[in-house]
Each structure stands twice: as C-alpha cells, then as structure tokens.
C-alpha cells in the first residue's frame, strides 16, 4: 500500500524528516508515536500533500505510484485521507455541501456516477450513526462553532463516507474527553478492514487502548528510532520518551 523510503523533508531550510523508512501493507494499523517536535505532523502533511515542505531526498510509493508527484487533491481522489489535528472552520460552506463535493470528487476519479440527492442523504445518515452525530450538523457551516469533539467526529464521518484506502489520523485523540475518545475510536474500528490501512499519529498510549495497532513506531528527531508491537507503546508510557535517549538510538 504505502512505502516510504529514506524520506528527508525540510521547512524553510530546516530539516525535519531525516531519513524515514516505513512500509504499510493493506489492512495494517500502524501507530507512530513520538515527543513534540519529532516530525509527526510534518510526516502526515507531507503524505497528504500540503504546500511548504521541501523533499530533499527519498521517495514515497503509494499503490505503485510516486506519491510525491501528485497534488493534494489527486492523492485524496486516489484514496488517501488525512484526518486533521486541527480541522478548520469554514463558515458559508455547509457540511452537507462539503461531504457531497468530496464524495463526488472521489467517485468521479473512480469512474462512478455522482450520487443523486436521495441516495447521498441516506448514505450520509447511515454514516452519521457510526459517529453518533445529529443530522443538524449537516446543515451548519463546516466545523463552524463545533466543539473539539464534534470536529473530530466530523473528520471520522468524512472518512467513513469517503472509504479511503489509506487513512492518516493526525492526533485524532487530542482534545477529546473519554466519551468522545470512545465514540471516535469505535468509528475508526468499524472502518478497519483487510483492504484499508491506517496510520495513527499520537503522543499518548491512551488512544492505542481503543484502537489497537498492529505495529508501533517511535519517531524521534525525524527518524524512526524503534519499532515493535503494541507492547512498545506501553513500555513508552511507563518510561517516557527520554528512555529512548538514555538507551541510545536503536541504530
């Protein structure tokens, strides 16, 4: 599904990613953990195609294509979904309009017809139950006046509707209380499948109790310094990130 090879990226001349190697196969759930400033958000932004990052070395292969050659929208149309750490508010664009435009963009790429209003609404209603969202949210401006938890649920709703091949969840747990965390995690777990890969980026082990990963990687200073299974995250939680440094990098 996704193969990141020796990826280097910089922002304003400052190196942030310094040689990332990661392979994600179909159906796998990977967690990437790491302290502040390790490069976690840079990695997710680079994968989603945000402007402002310079790739100085390495490559990313997604479903056989050179991902870094594609525009952000082309990546989305090909099945990459980034759940934002801070979803933006867009007053004046209704949530339902966004959902429809996004779904139609993906369907058009796939050579499918656009859904008519009735089929679209019944599909959205079904997906909304997954994240326990009330229908009134459809007709409000995108994330306008939503609480932190509502914004994150809205991200998962978009993911559920778009059915991506590769979902990147950027700190989806941040700003959530326990109940909201559970709702969001249940939504994500529902979406786990053999065909779908998920990369979760998080500070805390807490999220991994709800969405249990197949692999855990520790990102530090722009590199993956340790990989393991979910036990690694528990060890990290106990010993803190400084433990990695005292032990010395795995390389």
């Amino acid at each position: 599904m996704l193969e990141i090879k020796n990826l280097y990226a910089s922002v304003d001349g400052k190196d942030i990613l310094k040689g990332i190697n990661l392979t994600v196969n179909a159906g796998e759930v990977h967690a990437i953990m790491g302290p502040n400033g390790a490069g976690k958000s840079t990695l997710s932004n680079v994968l989603a195609g945000r402007d402002g990052y310079e790739i100085t070395q390495g490559e990313v292969i997604y479903k056989g294509d050179n991902l870094l050659e594609l525009k952000a929208e082309e990546r989305a149309q090909r099945g990459i979904f980034l759940a934002f750490q801070y979803p933006v508010e867009i007053p004046g664009v209704s949530n339902v309009y966004l959902l429809k435009a996004a779904l139609n963009a993906v369907r058009t790429y796939q050579g499918l017809e656009e859904l008519d209003a009735i089929d679209f609404l019944s599909l959205v209603r079904e997906k909304m139950q997954l994240v326990k969202m009330d229908e009134e949210f459809l007709y409000r401006g995108v994330n306008e006046g939503f609480s932190g938890g509502e914004k994150k649920r809205n991200e998962i709703l978009q993911m559920a509707l778009l059915e991506p091949s590769l979902a990147i969840l950027d700190e989806t747990d941040s700003g959530l209380d326990i109940d909201a965390l559970k709702t969001v995690s249940d939504g994500v777990n529902e979406l786990r499948s053999k065909e779908r890969s998920i990369v979760m980026i998080t500070h805390y082990q807490r999220l991994l109790d709800y969405i249990v990963p197949d692999f855990v990687h520790v990102l530090s200073d722009g590199k993956i310094v340790k990989s393991g299974d979910k036990e690694l995250s528990k060890e990290l939680e106990l010993k803190g990130y400084s433990w990695l440094h005292s032990e010395g990098p795995a390389a």
């Binding site: 989603a48 195609g49 945000r50 402007d51 525009k71 952000a72 929208e73 990546r75 989305a76 149309q77 979904f81 980034l82 934002f84 979803p87 933006v88 867009i90 966004l98 435009a101 996004a102 963009a105 993906v106 790429y109 978009q158 778009l162």
Partner: peptide, 9 residues
C-alpha cells in the same frame, strides 16, 4: 488545503 485534501481541485 483542507478542501484539497478532501479531493476538491
């Protein structure tokens, strides 16, 4: 960027 990341050109 948000809109483009949702597939809109």
């Amino acid at each position: 960027f948000f809109l483009r990341a949702r597939g809109l050109d």
